[in-house]
Design a protein around this nucleic acid. Structure first.
Length: 569
RNA sequence: GGGCCUGUAGCUCAAUUGGUUAGAGCAGGGCGCUCAUAACGCCUUGGUUGGGGGUUCGAGUCCCUCCGGGCCUACCA
């Protein structure tokens, strides 16, 4: 039994996420957490909403609500959807929590005392009409290079030239359209991560087993151009964590807040404090402080590739730079993007399926199975309705669902609704047990390596073994000559249903719960010994025939959904 | 512009890191079974590994080049 700390990249508060976001972090993290719990390990699985920053302020304004109220509401919405997808967080926190305020300010103080913070004076576009400083991307104007009239302050979408907001001709605020923009001098804090480049690089180099996607992005940032750059960690905003050194004011930083990318990862830690304060557990430090019990914790992070630089460099710089014994990540599992039917998911154009819509259409297990078995691990992956339909119908309804159905219904008609007794195993059963053992060990190997698609394939192969066995054993034929032999065969098959319910639960928890209920067993012990696991349901044990646990997606539904989610909702 | 990833069967993906005849699932074809959600099982068709060149006894894998797809480029988060 080991101790595993697992975090998923925290979703931004602004709106409901699409399936690509889900499969890039929360869902695989949940799979891994459920698997490790199933193996009997002690798991702490944390996630939260990322609530600060300009987009949250603007979204709140658009909704006509104070930003704090907007965030509280949206946190509730996201928490409910997460529950709908059966994401088994030990706690789903908020980066705006008091715990995170204190901890973020604490880290800032530590970094300051370690000499890792410097003040930088810079000029920034200010919009009197909007009453706020504008990030580069919230300024538009005419491109000095190509004349495109909607070039953004950071880059021209037409000619791709990198721009500075001051380069733009006739700049205007994206928010209000105001043109009375002015440059104002403002002071900000920078994290001197450049001084930690060697330490960070050495640490990254020691992680030879990380996905290439993770290390290649990290090395790019370490070595590109002039190497790792210092990073601004404060912003001129109202909504955020006030810049302080611990609980002391920070002279010159009045009215400023920490940049969301500084406080968001710290929320991983603060979230564990929230977990304690919510009465869900007692000691959060044994998960996060290596001097207080966390030295035997294995910490794994899950995220989409866009999040990698912050998790490989900025956050480790914060942790290491603090000079305190915080737990550093051991493994970073990163994902590529999921595309939608030949293009990208698009929030603004309503293209693709969003988490709330997905659950309105079908139960969580259908989505979980498809998304996880097609997780974008080696490259970007693509969702198509045809593929979704065939995968779900074939794998879940035909291979697994129908297996449970044929076994329970056959038993009911020949022996009644209890596990029949009699008969002795033959070499056929010995072989099945050997094949299952091989396949389950393979499944475990892939799960432990977080090779998600391979794990799904191995699991499916284990389901197929059940159907193969039935075909060969043919209890319906055996029953005519030797009912006891048929009883042994079907007893084994009934036990196989329970075994599948145990090993499949990380992927499809609801269906597995239904199966365990039908088999009337609470026993979710992992089949370390397959032969023994297939004798858990003893002769005489009552069960019931489950309703079909997976229904099929019809061609009509598929076509309907295809047009419904094509865009511009 | 720079960098990274990617291109393998009609489709979605593998290939033990340079080692026999490139493998699975789905789709297609044939056969079998009848317990089951017209489900299951067995057999089978199908590939000049994007094109070209090179290194090597040997290349899907390494190098060069061209073509296609995607991502990142530090103030969206």
């Amino acid at each position: 039994m080991a101790r595993h700390l697992i975090t998923s990249a925290i979703p931004y508060i602004n709106g409901i996420k699409h399936l690509g976001n889900l499969v890039g972090s929360q869902l695989p993290a949940d799979l891994y957490a459920r698997y490790l719990r199933g193996r009997g390990h002690e798991v702490m699985f944390l996630c939260a909403t990322d609530e600060h920053g300009t987009p949250a302020e603007l979204a709140a304004a658009k909704a006509g609500k104070p930003v704090a109220e907007y965030c509280e509401e949206m946190h509730g919405v996201q928490a409910e959807i997460a529950e709908g997808f059966r994401l088994s967080f030990d706690h789903f926190g908020r980066s705006s929590s008091p715990q995170n305020h204190r901890l973020t300010q604490h880290f800032a103080k530590q970094l300051y005392e370690q000499g890792l913070i410097r003040e930088v004076s810079e000029t920034q576009m200010y919009s009197p009409t909007d009453g706020r400083y504008l990030p580069d991307r919230y300024i538009e104007g005419t491109c000095p290079n190509c004349g495109f009239d909607s070039a953004r302050g950071d880059q021209c979408d037409n000619c791709t030239k990198q721009l500075d907001p001051v380069d733009l001709i006739d700049p205007r605020s994206v928010i209000s359209g105001a043109t009375d923009l002015e440059m104002r001098e403002t002071k900000h804090l920078y994290l001197r991560q450049s001084t930690m480049k060697d330490e960070l690089e050495k640490w990254i180099d020691s992680k030879a087993d990380w996905p290439i996607l993770t290390t290649s992005i990290a090395k790019k940032w370490l070595n590109d151009g002039d190497g790792l750059q210092d990073r601004g960690i404060t912003r001129d905003l109202d909504w955020g964590i006030p810049v302080k050194r611990g609980d002391e004011d920070w002279p010159g930083m009045e009215g400023k807040v920490f940049y969301v990318w500084f406080d968001a990862p710290i929320e991983y830690i603060a979230c564990a404090q929230e977990w304690v304060d919510a009465g869900k557990g007692e000691d959060w430090e044994r998960w996060w402080r290596t001097d207080k019990g966390a030295d035997d914790v294995t910490y794994t992070q899950f995220m989409g590739k866009d999040n990698v630089p912050f998790h490989t460099l900025s956050f480790p710089a914060t942790i290491l730079g603090s000079g305190e014994p915080w737990k550093l990540v051991d493994y970073i599992k990163s994902f590529n993007y999921l595309n939608y039917d030949g293009g990208q998911f698009s929030t603004s154009r309503g293209r693709g399926v969003f988490m709330d819509q997905a659950l309105e259409i079908l139960p969580a297990d259908y989505w979980r199975w498809w998304l996880l078995s097609h997780a974008p691990e080696s490259g970007d992956a693509e969702f198509t309705w045809e593929n979704f339909q065939t995968s779900v119908n074939k794998d879940l309804a035909d291979v697994l669902g129908n297996f449970a159905s044929r076994v329970t219904k056959f038993c009911r008609s020949k022996f009644g609704e209890e596990v029949p007794q009699g008969g002795a195993q033959t070499p056929l059963e010995t072989r099945l047990i050997a094949d299952l053992t091989t396949k389950i060990r393979e499944y475990e190997t892939h799960m432990e390596a977080m090779e998600i698609r391979k794990a799904a394939a191995a699991l499916r192969a284990a389901w197929v073994l059940g159907n193969e066995y039935l075909q060969e054993a043919a209890p319906w034929a055996t029953f005519k000559e030797d009912p006891e032999q048929a009883a042994m065969q079907i007893r084994l098959a009934l036990n196989l249903i329970r075994l599948y319910a145990v090993i499949s639960a990380p992927f499809i928890p609801d269906a597995c719960a239904t199966l365990r209920t039908a088999m009337r067993t609470e026993d979710a012990g992992w089949p370390d010994d397959v032969a023994a696991a297939l004798e858990v349901l003893a002769p005489g044990h009552a069960f019931s025939v489950p309703e079909n646990i997976f229904r099929k997606i019809t061609d009509e539904e598929r076509e309907d959904w295809q047009s419904r989610f094509a865009g511009t909702r």
